[in-house]
Design a protein around this nucleic acid. Structure first.
Length: 306
DNA sequence: CATCGACCCTGCGGGC
DNA sequence: TGCCCGCAGGGTCGAT
């Protein structure tokens, strides 16, 4: 559920609260709350001091005063809260960490259990140290490591649709279903356009749109549709009102009034304006109204198949 | 190596 | 009312 702006909102909430504090006690209430495959015992972080909170794409972690990190991923429904210690345990409370704050404790809540916490060893790259479980994740678009030329070349070398490439966290990270649809709407690119058919100019426009949409979402505390995404204080973000494509099926495009369409591919919904976002490489078919009379006598390839 | 589909979960709303 | 279906913001894995 949460994408880069939501995870960054959580990171910004956690960092000032927890930097300088020490981990006193940890409790895990659900087996899936710990990442499967992590080998370091969870309680080996007890006594560690938090130096800062880092993030790469949708992964975030506590940098500790030792050579391991406490990593978290929110999955589809995860929340990290600074809860009053005496507050009733939430229904989906999966883990609790005592950071030595007299009033508040860290709570990890996750309805669908796709999120997790994990203690990880560190690996180094040219820029610094990364927890092992996210060392395969590419830099996100706001990272110093992000090299736009390189990423553009990578995207153009793929033979998948542009939206799939944008969702691939090993090409660039942080983009999920909402911001992919939003950025493609702003850049006027059809989500199923083959990545290899896009020009450098178009890809630059897409990345510009990604930055714009994510910055704007971040300013508004992220996107919340319900109580599943909230910041560390339990408050919702307001970006939902700014959405132009995502979740707007059958509602008018804010640019041209055409109804937004929803299609599914790769088991996910894509929302786009069929007029503003034409598939590249497909012959223009409606420059003039008269063309409508001409076309469509011969079934399109797609029609012929079925 | 790149790509695809299945899978991991819980809960919600709509149609019947 | 209850049941079944499709749907939901993510990532990993094995097969091809």
């Amino acid at each position: 559920m949460p994408e880069l702006p939501e995870v960054e909102t959580v990171r910004r909430g956690l960092e000032p609260w927890l930097t300088g504090k020490r981990i006193r006690q940890v409790e895990i209430f659900h087996p899936r709350a710990l990442r499967e495959g992590s080998t370091i015992p969870f309680d080996s972080i007890i006594g560690a001091r938090i130096e800062r909170v880092d993030r790469r794409g949708k992964f975030l972690w506590f940098v500790l005063d030792r050579d391991i990190a406490l990593v978290g991923h929110l999955g589809m429904s995860g929340q990290m809260l600074a809860s009053p210690r005496k507050a009733q345990p939430e229904k989906h409370l999966r883990a609790r960490i005592d950071f030595g704050d007299k009033k508040r404790e860290f709570r990890f809540i996750d309805q669908r259990t796709f999120g997790w916490l994990s203690v990880e060893s560190l690996v180094s790259n040219n820029y610094g140290l990364l927890p092992e479980c996210c060392s395969h994740i590419a830099p996100d678009i706001f990272s110093e490591e992000f090299d736009e030329r390189e990423v553009i070349a990578k995207v153009r070398g793929r033979k998948v649709e542009i939206k799939k490439a944008l969702l691939n966290q090993e090409i660039l990270s942080g983009i999920g279903n909402i911001y992919a649809d939003e950025a493609l709407w702003h850049a006027k690119i059809h989500p199923e356009t083959p990545a290899s058919k896009l020009s450098e100019i178009e890809l630059k426009a897409i990345f510009k749109a990604v930055r714009r949409v994510m910055r704007s979402a971040l300013k508004q505390g992220g996107t919340s549709f319900d109580d599943l995404y909230i910041n560390v204080n339990g408050e919702s973000g307001y970006f939902e009102v700014s959405l132009r494509a995502y979740g707007r099926e059958d509602e008018p495009c804010r640019r041209c009034g055409t109804f937004i369409r929803r299609i599914t591919f790769a088991n996910r919904s894509s929302h786009f304006c069929p007029k503003c976002q034409r598939k590249k490489g497909v012959k223009a078919r409606s420059r003039g109204k008269s063309r409508a009379k001409w076309g469509r006598k011969i079934p399109s390839k797609r029609g012929a198949v079925r």
